[in-house]
């Protein structure tokens, strides 16, 4: 992994990978959402509103996944002090915040017809909201500290502290109150992992989830390339100003 941490190598590699990532993201999301909107039968209780699930659940996955990604990038940045890892964590944060917000908004829209309310202070909703605050704090600290290297280390420390705290928050809000259903896409049954929804609904959901993952990496690579270019321009301009 460190071999590709060289910005030049990263630029080459990401330029090669980006078209594939875009194609995969668009194809998977396109197929998944087409199935979700036109093919999957309406739920016997929830009717057509169940289709929100195909946006809501992948967004929730991505919200947590991206924070995990940022954690790994932050640890790499703290240990090896590599600017590319810092850039990866920094550029992932707004995408993660958007997915988390999308999860909250779609969940709220889904909650109104199903639970009869847009928002309740339920365990999963609350922990997702706290996750959004963690993202915002992370973005906030990047923009508050001017010196890039210092901002990177401060943000990395914050991210690591947040990861330690997430399970505690998760556990404590669950103990506190819960209405949201438990994890129900896959369950342990008779000692093995088995899907608990019909394949006709499982595949579009997985495709949407995978599509979101590819979308994340595509967006991340574009953002990181922009960041590298921005840094280069700044160096060039300060060199010119000094000359």
């Amino acid at each position: 992994m460190l071999r590709y941490a060289n910005p030049k190598r990263f630029l080459d590699l990401s330029a090669t990978l980006l078209p594939f990532l875009w194609v995969l993201a668009i194809a998977l999301l396109g197929w998944g959402l087409y199935e979700a909107i036109f093919v999957v039968p309406p739920d016997y209780q929830q009717g057509d509103s169940v289709r929100i699930m195909y946006v809501h659940v992948p967004s929730a996955w991505m919200g947590s996944f991206i924070y995990g990604f940022m954690f790994i990038a932050s640890v790499v940045g703290l240990v090896w002090k590599h600017p590319l890892a810092d850039a990866a964590a920094k550029e992932a944060a707004p995408i993660g915040a958007c997915f988390t917000a999308a999860c909250l908004i779609t969940g709220s829209l889904w909650g109104k017809p199903m639970w009869g309310t847009y928002w309740i202070w339920d365990a999963r909703l609350t922990s997702m909201l706290v996750l959004l605050f963690l993202y915002l704090g992370y973005i906030g600290i990047w923009s508050a500290i001017e010196d890039r290297a210092k901002a990177a280390r401060a943000a990395a420390i914050l991210c690591v502290v947040g990861v330690i705290n997430i399970p505690i928050i998760r556990f404590s809000v669950e103990w506190w109150d819960t209405l949201h259903q438990g994890p129900s896409v896959v369950r342990f049954e008779n000692g093995k992992l088995s899907p608990s929804i019909d394949p006709s609904m499982l595949w579009p959901l997985l495709a949407a989830g995978l599509g979101c993952t590819f979308l994340f990496f595509a967006l991340l690579f574009v953002r990181m390339r922009t960041e590298i270019a921005r840094r280069r321009i700044r160096t060039l301009m300060s060199a010119r100003a000094a000359a």
């Binding site: 706290v130 963690l134 915002l136 508050a144 401060a154 705290n165 928050i169 404590s172």
Partner: peptide, 23 residues
């Protein structure tokens, strides 16, 4: 400590710290 050197760290501080207070 994260906001120690910042001129207007107060608001950012509450955003950073309140999630840690939740449990």
């Amino acid at each position: 400590a994260l906001t120690a050197g910042l001129r207007r760290g107060g608001l950012l501080l509450s955003l950073l710290v309140l999630p840690l207070f939740v449990p």
